[in-house]
Simulated scan of single mutants.
Amino acid sequence: MTVRIGVEEEFHIVEVETGRLAPRADAVLKGLPEYTFTTELQQAAVETNSGVHETLADLYDDVTGARRRLDAAANAHGLAVVAAGTVPLARAEDTRPTPGRRYRRMVDDYRMVADEQLICGTHVHVDVPDRDLAVRVMCEVSPWLHALLALSASSPFWANTDTGYASWRTMVWQRWPTAGPPGCFADAAEYDAVVQGLVRSGVISDVGMIYYDIRPSAHQQTLELRICDACPRAETVVLIAGLFRALVTDARARLAAAEPPACPGRHEWLRAAAWRAARSGLEGALIDPGTRREAPAAQVVRGLLGRVRPALEAAGDWPTVLGLAERALADGSAAHRIRRTAHHDDLLACTDLAIAETRGEERPRPRRTAPPRRVASPGQAAA
């Protein structure tokens, strides 16, 4: 039986003419079904929730359909949506928190961390009905998650500035107290005890604030991937979903065969690997999980493909995932495409590119007026 998958995507809401954030989530979401479209902490962001699917083709149709509906709703207000980790011209003063007791408490407790939550991610859910098994799989797949981050990297700019990173969203996200790689746990009881301890400490207010790179869902029988940037191209979402499902399937098989654990409980190198992926994307070195040494990104991604090929073939995903992965390596990360646009044009053109890719278009639509030129430094190349 094929393991089912689903995704959650976060989108920035921007003014088309200026590229600035627009706190108009309530207007954009009006009339859209709440089970598919919902709010986020900041009013300049919205989230979509896919259905649950067995095939990547069905997932792709769902994701692109939701994007079309959301784009049409935004366009009716002179706005657009952007699936990217950050948008280049974002400023905290251009948005405001979404009303509600929980969000108000988060703003009061975390201040600038919440104020500057101007980031969007892609989350993938994979069915793992046994919660004890989900916790063990979480540890098993963790050494490979940074490769998925590199594939998603789409946030080189922050507040008009080239950060030098492929995923600056990762750096912003890791300011939350429970972000980053999780620990390894023997079973769900041990994991849940740690989570409840964090809630009792007062550092977080509820279990929904466990922001690990991967976690067992608190309300579904799934394992949830959370490390990735939002992805301009829907094809990248499908690629990451296919790879993550294959990693989970592979891990379950290895655990059933009682193979030695891939992650022996040392997590300092997992955080370092995530930093390396956020810095470099696909354009520099990543950490090879086998050697824990630097290796070209293409080598690490192809190593991941080789590891999970049996799982991909069993699901019928191998041709699709291989083709999407090779295209990603050939085209470079979204961060690379965005930074290249800034080098040749300006930051508003970067936003136009991200809007176009979010819509499934190859290039931005012509502007009605010539905008003021905003030239950004391309920054130093990723190390």
Rank of each mutant, 00 (worst) to 15 (best):
W168G: 03
A25W: 00
W269K: 06
W269P: 00
A381I: 12
R245A: 05
E259A: 12
P88H: 08
T36A: 15
I227F: 01
L223K: 05
V7E: 02
T222H: 00
L223R: 03
Q117W: 13
A45M: 14
G31N: 00
E17P: 09
D352I: 11
H123Q: 00
C350A: 14
E17Q: 14
A193W: 11
A273H: 06
A328F: 07
A272C: 11
F244G: 05
V14S: 01
A335Y: 02
P177A: 04
V237A: 00
R131F: 11
T341H: 04
R307Q: 09
V3R: 14
T122M: 15
V321Y: 05
I355G: 05
L305C: 11
A311F: 10
S217L: 09
R292D: 04
E40W: 00
P181V: 08
R368E: 11
R233T: 07
G65W: 01
Q380P: 12
R340H: 13
G183L: 13
P181I: 08
Q380E: 15
T351L: 10
Q174N: 13
G379H: 05
S152H: 05
A382D: 09
L348M: 11
P310Q: 10
D352T: 10
A349E: 05
Y191D: 04
R337Y: 02
L286W: 02
R169G: 08
C139G: 15
P181E: 06
Y211N: 08
A66K: 13
D58M: 09
P88E: 10
W173K: 11
S154N: 09
L70S: 02
D127E: 13
D127S: 11
G265M: 09
D192I: 08
A134F: 03
T64R: 09
L29D: 04
L239P: 03
A285D: 14
P23G: 07
T98L: 07
G164S: 02
Q117P: 06
L282N: 07
R96M: 13
R359L: 13
D346H: 06
R68T: 12
P156G: 10
L118C: 08
L304R: 01
E235F: 03
Q42V: 10
V124Y: 07
R327E: 06
G164N: 06
A66G: 10
V82S: 01
V46E: 08
T95Q: 06
L59M: 08
G360M: 12
A277Y: 06
A27F: 12
N75R: 14
E140V: 05
V300K: 07
T178N: 03
S142I: 12
A278P: 01
V81T: 05
E190N: 06
A44P: 04
V28R: 01
R337H: 07
G180W: 07
A298L: 12
D130F: 04
S167N: 01
V375K: 14
V195I: 11
F11C: 01
D71P: 00
P366G: 11
I355V: 15
G85Y: 05
F11Q: 02
T351H: 02
V82Y: 03
T18D: 03
V126T: 01
V82F: 05
G180R: 02
V203D: 00
V300C: 08
L255M: 00
L70N: 02
A84H: 02
V194L: 15
L353F: 01
A74W: 01
Q380L: 15
E283C: 05
L149Y: 09
